[in-house]
Design a protein around this nucleic acid. Structure first.
Lengths: 133, 133
DNA sequence: CTTGACCCTGTAGTTGCTACAGGCCCCATA
DNA sequence: TATGGGGCCTGTAGCAACTACAGGGTCAAG
């Protein structure tokens, strides 16, 4: 009866150490222990961990996962808070995508100017180096 | 004579602690010290730090910055190694962009299904929650 | 001569895990 | 019944790349 920490790990593709870490930071409740001091988990724990993992896979940082969890614990609350968190996360991702695209074009511009000579006249190193006087 | 660590920080938009950190991990050489034990930097140090910051701004991780620095120190080396590092970084960025775009579309799909009701029937929470039986 | 801005060292915190070390526990097999 | 191997336990330290103190020293202006 009860799932071991290894069972939970397998079921959610989560490393055992990560589960203990989630417990330590209070994302997962401390489970009951068996006579031999093993953690014994319930289906509810499995659901909660699955929730965490799905949110993490979607890139939510742990603090936002924490908020989403506490929202999902209170079903009568309005949905607006969830919407707010998700929108904020989306804006964050959009900003990151923008940054990366800018980087990407800069790097690929640098690459096209690299003429396979020596470092002495490498345009990439030149770009990184000090401004010419 | 010589630049203080604060001067260097201002000139490169780098926090003083970060400069000391770069010194500790061997990215920047240990500078000479004044009578009062202050670090005194040269223009060459400023150039080197600028190089580091530019590479960091382009998203190169410190280990790759280290490689680029040692390449730029040996001007007779072929440029191919620089090209290789830059290309690898570019592939990395492309992968990240792909990941983020996938996330983005998932999140925005979730948002469009959120109907501003209560948590009880919030589609976002539902998506994160356990599979229905 | 004091004030305030800067500098020094050393250590601990951040995020989200991951990897030990050194030791229990449990089950199956011989 | 002994034993071997897996899995579990706690606690600590490590990763990137900084950042933030605490508790002091130094320097230039007023």
């Amino acid at each position: 009866m009860g799932l071991t920490i290894g069972d939970l790990g397998k079921a959610t593709s989560t490393k055992v150490e990560t589960i203990r870490y989630y417990e330590r930071i209070g994302l997962l409740p401390k489970p009951v222990r068996t006579a031999g001091n093993y953690r014994a988990y319930s289906e509810a724990d499995l659901d909660r961990l699955s929730f965490i993992r799905r949110a993490r896979d979607l890139g939510f940082p742990l603090e936002q996962v924490r908020e989403l969890l506490s929202l999902s614990d209170d079903k009568s609350q309005p949905c607006a808070a969830v919407d707010r968190i998700t929108s904020a996360h989306l804006r964050d991702i959009d900003r990151k995508i923008g940054d990366l695209l800018a980087l990407r074009s800069e790097l690929s511009r640098m690459l096209t100017t690299c003429r396979q000579g020596t470092i002495a006249d490498c345009r990439i190193i030149e770009t990184l180096g000090p401004a010419l006087p």
